[in-house]
Amino acid sequence: MTAITRRILLGSALALGLAGTAAAQFPERQITLVVPFAAGGSTDVVGRIVAERMSQELGQQIVVQNVGGAGGSLGAQQVAQADADGYTILMATVATHALNPLILTQKPYDPVADFAPISLLVLVPNVLAVNPELPVNTVQELIDLAKEQPLAYASSGNGTPLHLSGELFKSMAGVEIDHIPYKGSGPALTDVLGNQVPIIFDNLPSASGHISSGKLRALGVTTAERAPSFPDIPTIAETLPGYETYTWNALFAPAGTPPEAIEALAVAARTAMADPAVAERMAEFSATIVASGPEELAAHVQAEMAKWEPVVRDANVTMD
C-alpha cells in the first residue's frame, strides 16, 4: 500500500467517522415547527403539546412559529422552500396536504414531491350537529327531512375540511343541502346557536361545550369509530356506511432532508405521543393518537387525496 493510498483510506475513514458523528448529534440546535394557522386552534394546540415533549426527547428546543393564511398554504409553502436540514418542519393537516392542493388554482407547492413525511400524529373528529329546534334526532331523520324541505348547513368557510365533510355527506346521502360558508367556526356556531342556520359541520373540540350544554344536538361524529369523549354520539357511518372524514395533524420536513434527521424526528414524535401525559391532553379534545412512521404517513396522504378529489370535483370547489 502506497503512502498516497494510505492517506486516501485514512481520509475516507475520517470523513465517514465525522459524518456518523454529525448524524448521531442531530439536532445540534433549535428546531422551528411551523404551524400554518393562527394561535389557539386545535392544530396549534397539538403542535405546542408535541413540540414541548419532543424538545425533551431531542435535547434541543422546538419553537412553534404560527404562519397563518390561505388555508394553511402560506405556512406549508414556507416549509417546502426551507433548507432541507431537519431544522424547519411543518405541522400539516388535511387542508395543507389534501384539500388545498386539489382546490387552489395556483399551486404553491406539491404535497408529495416537496415534502418528506415524518409522522401522522393524531386524528381529530368532526361532528354533524343541529339546532335543537330542528325536529330531527338522528342522521337518518335529517336525511329524510332534507328530502322533504330545503335545508342549509354552516361551515367555517369555503374549501375547509368542514365544508367538504358536508359535501361528502350530501353526495353519499343523496340529498341537497345548501352550504353557508363563514369566516371561521366561531361565527358559524353563533348563527347555528341562534337558529339562523339549522345545521353545522364543525370540529368536535370547538362544538363540544355546546353539545354538553344542550345548545346543540349532535347527530353523528365523522370518524369511523365513536369519539371516546362522547361515546353516546353515533358515527355518521352507522347510517351511511363508508362515510369518514376527520381533521388530522402530521409532521413533515422539506424534501431532501437527510434520512438520519427524519428518523430522529420520527422516533422523538412517536416517543412523545406514547407519553401518558400527552395522551391525556389529546384525549381532552377527542384526538386519536396514531404516531405512525414516515411510510404510513406517505400512504395516508395519497389515500386522502384520492378520497377528496372526486368530492372537490363534484362540488366544483375552487379557490384562487
Rank of each mutant, 00 (worst) to 15 (best):
A15T: 10
T190G: 09
T5W: 09
E176S: 06
I289E: 07
T318E: 03
A306F: 11
I180C: 10
A218V: 08
L99V: 08
S185N: 11
S119D: 00
M319R: 04
V278C: 03
V278Y: 00
R29G: 14
T160F: 06
P125I: 08
L90M: 06
P259W: 15
S292Y: 05
S208V: 11
A173C: 12
L142I: 11
Y182R: 01
E167A: 06
Y182E: 08
A23Y: 01
S73P: 00
Q78S: 12
V94C: 09
S213K: 05
A269E: 11
V267G: 09
M172S: 10
L265V: 06
E57A: 13
A261T: 08
T88V: 05
A146P: 01
D144C: 10
F201Q: 02
S119H: 02
Q78L: 08
A15K: 00
M282A: 01
G157D: 02
P132Y: 05
G59S: 05
E295I: 06
G194K: 01
L58P: 00
E238S: 15
F169Y: 02
L99S: 04
V192N: 03
E280P: 07
V192A: 03
G174C: 06
A22N: 02
G166A: 06
T93M: 09
R217T: 15
R217K: 15
A39E: 14
F252H: 14
E263N: 13
G20R: 14
S156Y: 04
F169W: 09
V46T: 14
G256N: 04
E304Y: 09
V278R: 00
V290G: 07
V63F: 11
M305D: 04
T222R: 05
T43Q: 08
T105W: 06
R29C: 08
T88L: 04
Y243N: 13
I236Q: 01
G59H: 04
H163G: 05
I289M: 09
P276D: 15
M172L: 11
L164H: 00
R313L: 14
E167Y: 01
T318W: 00
I89D: 02
A3E: 15
L33A: 06
P228R: 13
Q106T: 15
G72H: 03
G157K: 04
A255P: 08
Y109M: 01
I118M: 12
N203L: 15
T160A: 11
N131G: 09
V127Q: 02
V122L: 12
E28K: 12
P228M: 09
E57V: 13
L297M: 09
V130F: 01
V221W: 03
V45R: 03
D202H: 05
S185V: 10
L120V: 00
V94L: 14
A269W: 07
S292I: 02
M305K: 14
P205S: 12
T318L: 02
V34Y: 09
M54G: 13
G86C: 01
V67S: 07
R7I: 01
K170T: 07
L168K: 04
L90T: 03
V79R: 02
A272M: 06
P161W: 05
A113P: 08
P310R: 04
D44R: 07
R53G: 04
G293W: 05
N316H: 13
A266N: 09
S292E: 10
S42C: 07
A264M: 10
M273G: 03
D320A: 11
S212A: 15
G293K: 03
A15S: 09
A266S: 15
A116N: 03
P310E: 03
P36E: 00
G11E: 14
S208F: 06
Q61G: 07
